[in-house]
Design a protein around this nucleic acid. Structure first.
Length: 770
DNA sequence: TAGTTTTAAGTTTTT
DNA sequence: CTTAAAACTA
């Protein structure tokens, strides 16, 4: 598939190598560009990855650039891998360029330069859960929600490059308690010697600013810096980019403001809008030729996103020309929705001759892999999975694999983290008394205090426990010994590089590989993991504890061990493995049966970025599902961009489905069609099923939506049913600045007040029409 | 302190 | 419907 080129490039074209001649004029201009900073505004499907990879290869091949002086950053590991692969296909030397995600670059940087700010190179990266666990130890008596909220606030603060002492912190949370909590958290994290995700960006910037000689080194090393998906960069990442750019550095960023879907995580669209101001002299190149989708698909995607105010605005041209109109299907409930998807897929995959529909030839024979089912939340995948399983449709679920969130996996990782860093309080608390060894909370607190506040406050929990052993109760003492013994065994594996031949080790070898309920050592680091989980009693714990899921859990541990077999059984190997796990949790999905490649893709809208499929179904087009709650209206624009991203994944066919009823948390709720559906010109759609009352055609004179008052408004006298309290009636409605306060008198005589009484919680409004 | 049972509460998106 | 926190018993 060759791109069109304009006339004047013809002469030049003939002398160009094929990898350059396939580019269109704008793409080529972007590849050849040099000198000033460059901003490439690349619409969906306009070949932006091709431009970046080609540019890398071109710099090496034609400009004689040393690949090691090229840094290219992306946001996802998948994108980084793909980029590396494609660049290498053009020129093998691209393998020596540094292609990483922002976070993996930060980790790489800190392992080498962290000591400057007192960070030991053996640090472990804390994920959001670890962050919350640590915060929990600082917020006694706080509820889970408060802890999560605080964790979110601190993470955002770091995204915006805000330290505890900065006044702007009040923009995230104005309370003084938040500031002091952030301070305490930072202090504690420093003591432990670990970092969180935000630190991976923020700390390198601080080092580069404090140590000019380090900054100089980096500015000399990286002569070219390329950033992909720049619209997803947060403030801290922008600062990092600035610190890495010297006067001689060539910087090129690629992005699309309409595809910015990570504001909730601190992404700052203004980064791309204001790039020309921040990097004076910036040249801008627009890539607006779309090579992926047919015109109606592009039209549908554009019409929704064009309702946004905050955008640069662009015109995508469909190089593929016209095609089928998108289909909008109204369905009674999500079971029918799953059946509808399954039916569509089955029909398309069946050989054309078997079909007896009125379809006119030529038939387009599809394969399962041509299809993707998109949804807003991971929870929605379940319905499709059951239906596809029942019908024998092969599928794979992308993302959502909560492999690393499983208890047994987290236990094993905590053991490894503690082995890597004996100051890791979070890991210590998790596994020191698992299985129960008589080491209770009181003992744990005592050990932590000894480690952090004692005369020898070096933070090492192993050493502190060792010191306290003598004065502990016999039970606790034996437990501590068992735990420390297991850690020691693990360490000896790392030091020696070979497993110690203990009794357990010997019996391990005698076991048959298939014997259930045991974890087997393979090679490298997996040996260490096997020893640790076995010695620490995690295997036995899960085997005996849960008879039903036990075997599955053991095999999960086995899988974790297998993943580690590629890493050397050394301290360095351990760090590498942990870092890989923290930064890239995508892991090849183990669910997918070997050999079967032809599968339908089930995926969240967010996860589809950068992918493409011949046929795409966007499901759950309902208010409250997609878009999700728009109480503040602020997220609405981002939800529109999410629709734009999802719709532009489709090459040939796009389907949208909307349910009138949906079961959510065990309760059936009536749904309104997504307002996005009203934003698409009806004549462009093929509508299946009967449109519900809420689906009003777009009226040019007056914007749709809001005609119906939202349900859930309460009046005195309304009858209702409460799951726990039974029937009752509203006796008072009071408007407060934070919403309606409803007083309900139940038939039992009990009176309760409810704040923001919402339907579809555990309360059902009863309509007394007859 | 450990392991049970009961009760309540909450459901985005991810490096 | 699933998960987590609190409460309770041995």
């Amino acid at each position: 598939m060759l791109n069109k080129t304009d006339g004047k490039g013809k002469a030049q074209e003939e002398t160009l190598p094929p990898y350059l001649s396939i580019l269109n004029a704008e793409q080529r201009e972007a590849v050849f560009h040099r000198g000033n900073p460059l901003l490439i505004l690349a619409g969906a499907g306009s070949g932006k990855t091709r431009v970046i990879t080609t540019k890398i290869a071109y710099l090496i091949r034609e400009q004689g650039m040393d690949p090691r002086s090229i840094l290219a950053v992306t946001f996802t590991n998948k994108a980084a891998r793909e980029m590396a692969e494609r660049a290498r296909l053009i020129d093998e030397r691209a393998a020596y360029a540094m292609l990483r995600t922002f976070h993996s670059f930060g980790a790489w940087f800190l392992r080498r330069n962290g000591t400057l700010i007192g960070l030991n190179a053996g640090f472990v990266i804390y994920d959001d859960d670890d962050m919350s666990s640590l915060l929990a130890t600082l917020m006694e008596g706080a509820s889970m929600g408060e802890i999560k909220h605080a964790a979110y606030g601190i993470a955002r603060a770091k995204d915006f490059f805000l330290s505890p002492e900065q006044p702007e912190l009040s923009l995230i949370d104005h309370r003084e308690t938040f500031r002091s909590l952030y301070t305490k958290y930072e202090e504690r994290l420093r003591q432990i010697g670990n970092v969180d995700f935000g630190d991976l960006i923020k700390k390198p910037v601080e080092i580069l600013r404090t140590y000019p000689e380090v900054a100089e080194r980096f500015k000399n090393r990286f002569r070219v810096i390329l950033v992909d998906e720049y619209q997803d960069a947060n403030i801290a990442q922008f600062e990092l980019l600035k610190e890495l750019c010297g006067p001689e550095t060539y910087v090129c960023v690629v992005g699309d403001d309409d595809q910015s879907i990570y504001a909730f995580r601190g992404a700052e669209v203004r980064n791309i809008l204001e790039f020309p101001d921040r990097f004076p002299g910036t040249d801008i190149i627009r890539l607006e030729r779309n090579y992926r989708s047919t015109a109606p698909i592009l039209q549908t995607a554009s019409s929704v996103v064009s309702h946004n105010q905050d955008r640069l605005g662009k015109t995508l041209r469909a190089e593929r020309g016209n095609g089928k109109n998108p289909v909008l299907a109204f369905l009674p409930n999500q079971h029918e929705e799953a059946a509808f998807c399954a039916h569509l897929i089955e029909e398309s995959v069946r050989p054309a001759k078997e079909r007896s529909t009125g379809e006119k030839p030529p038939f387009k024979q599809a394969s399962y892999a041509d299809w993707a089912v998109l949804y807003r939340t991971n929870a929605q995948s379940l319905g499709f999975e059951t239906e596809f399983l029942r019908r024998g449709i092969p599928y794979r679920v992308v993302g959502s694999l909560k492999f690393y969130e499983r208890e047994e996996v987290k236990d094993a990782l905590a053991l490894l983290s503690f082995l890597a860093n004996p100051r890791d309080e979070v890991a210590f608390r998790r596994v020191v008394n698992k299985p129960a060894r008589g080491v209770g909370n009181a003992t744990v607190d005592r050990i932590v205090r000894e480690a952090t506040e004692g005369p020898l406050a070096e933070g090492n929990l192993s050493a502190a426990a060792q010191r306290l052993k003598a004065v502990l109760a016999p039970k606790a003492r034996a437990g501590i010994e068992a735990f420390l013994g297991a850690i020691e065994k693990g360490r000896s594996v790392l030091d020696r590089g070979v497993p110690e031949v203990s009794d357990e080790g010997a019996s391990l070898k005698s076991l048959k590989p298939q014997e259930p309920g045991n974890v087997h050592a393979g090679e490298g680091l997996s040996v260490c993991i096997v020893h640790l989980v076995q010695e620490a009693g995690i295997v036995d714990y899960h085997r005996t504890h849960d008879e039903i899921a036990g075997n599955q859990r053991i095999s999960n541990l086995q899988e974790l061990a297998n993943a580690a077999s590629l890493y050397p059984a050394s301290f360095g190997g351990l760090l590498e493995f942990l870092e890989h796990l923290e930064l890239d949790r995508s892991l090849e999905d183990p669910h997918g049966k070997e050999g079967i490649q032809d599968m339908v893709t089930l995926i969240t809208l967010h996860n589809t970025k950068g992918l493409e499929f011949r046929r795409v179904i966007i499901t759950g087009m309902e208010q409250g599902v997609f878009p999700r709650d728009d109480k503040r209206g602020e997220n609405l624009e981002e939800e529109r961009r999410l629709f734009y991203v999802g719709a532009t994944r489709a090459m040939d066919e796009l389907y949208l489905s909307s349910c009138t009823q949906r079961r959510m948390y065990g309760r059936t709720a009536l749904m309104e069609p997504s307002r996005f559906l009203m934003e698409i010109d009806r004549t462009q759609l093929r509508i299946i099923g009967s449109p519900p009352r809420g689906y009003a055609p777009r009226n040019p004179s007056r914007p749709a939506g809001e005609q119906h008052p939202p349900p859930g408004t309460w009046q005195v006298g309304n009858r209702l049913f409460h799951d726990d309290q039974g029937y009752g009636s509203v006796v008072e409605v009071q408007e407060t600045p934070e919403g309606p306060l409803v007083r309900v008198c139940f038939d039992t005589g009990k009176e309760l007040r409810f704040f923001g009484l919402k339907q579809r919680k555990r309360i059902t409004k009863i309509h007394e029409e007859r």
